[in-house]
Design a protein around this nucleic acid. Structure first.
Lengths: 117, 117
DNA sequence: ACAATAATTCAATAATTGTTGTAGAGTTGA
DNA sequence: TCAACTCTACAACAATTATTGAATTATTGT
C-alpha cells in the first residue's frame, strides 16, 4: 500500500456522509445494501449519495456489484486492514515486542476479511 | 467516541504531511520526537509543520509535552483504537461470530496502548 | 416499443483546507 | 538583561471539496 492510496482512504472517511455510509455498510455486513436503501436509511439525495459512494469505492473501502438495475454496495474489510498495516509499519522501533502484537492483530483481521470477501 | 471526533481523526490523517508525521512518530515509538527533529526529518518549514502538528494533536492522534524550549510529540495509540472501535461498532449484524474476532483484536490493541501511554 | 424505476454524470455554486511569510511568546545560558 | 534559539499565532493567497438540480444511461415489466 502506498501513501496516495492511504490518503484516499482517510479522505474517504473524513466526511460525515461517507462515514455514516461506511458504518452502515459495516453494520449490514456481507449482505450489503443497494444505493436506494442507503439513501433511504440516511435521508440523502440520490445525486449526493452517488458522489460519496463513488469516493468510497474509488478509495477501495467499499465494493459494488450490479444487480439488475440496482447497485449493491458492501464494506470491504481487506482495504481497512491494509490501511492499518500501513500506519503501523516499522512501529515502535525501540520496542519490538509491541510490533509482534500488531502482527497478530493484522493476521486476525486478515482472516476475518477472507470470510467477508 | 462521537462522529465529530472520528472525522477529525480521519481528516488529520488525510494529508500527506500529517500522514508522514504520524507514521514517523509511530516508528519512533515511545521516545517521540521534538518539533525540530520532525521538521528536519521530513524537510518541512517550521510554520507548516506547526500547523499540521496542531491538527494532529487537536484530533488526539498525538500528544505533546513541553521540554524546556522544545515540544515533544508522540503518537497516541488509544485514540487509534477508539477510531477502529467506532468504525466496527455493531459490525456484521448478520454474522455475530465475526464481531467476536473484532472484539479480540480491540482488546489486544488496547493492551498495547496501555504500555505506550 | 413504451413508461416507470434506479442510479449516475455533468455543470454551477458555495464552502473549506493548505501553504507561505511576518511577527511574537517563551526558554536558555552568559 | 541580552542575544540566540524553538516553536507557534496570525493574515493573505491559492487550491481543493461538498452540495444542488437538470439531463443521461441502463434495466424492468407490460
Amino acid at each position: 500500500m502506498n501513501q496516495a492510496a492511504a490518503i484516499a482512504r482517510f479522505e474517504a472517511l473524513a466526511s460525515a456522509v461517507r462515514l455514516d455510509v461506511y458504518r452502515l455498510l459495516m453494520r449490514e455486513g456481507p449482505g450489503g445494501m443497494v444505493a436506494g436503501e442507503i439513501a433511504a436509511a440516511l435521508e440523502l439525495a440520490p445525486t449526493n449519495l452517488s458522489f460519496h459512494l463513488k469516493c468510497l469505492s474509488r478509495a477501495g473501502l467499499v465494493t459494488v456489484v450490479q444487480e439488475g438495475r440496482y447497485q449493491r454496495y458492501r464494506a470491504h474489510l481487506p482495504s481497512m486492514l491494509e490501511v492499518l498495516t500501513y500506519l503501523t509499519e516499522e512501529c515502535c522501533g525501540g520496542a519490538p515486542e509491541l510490533c509482534a502484537e500488531l502482527a497478530t492483530f493484522s493476521a486476525r483481521l486478515g482472516a476475518q476479511a477472507g470470510k467477508r470477501g
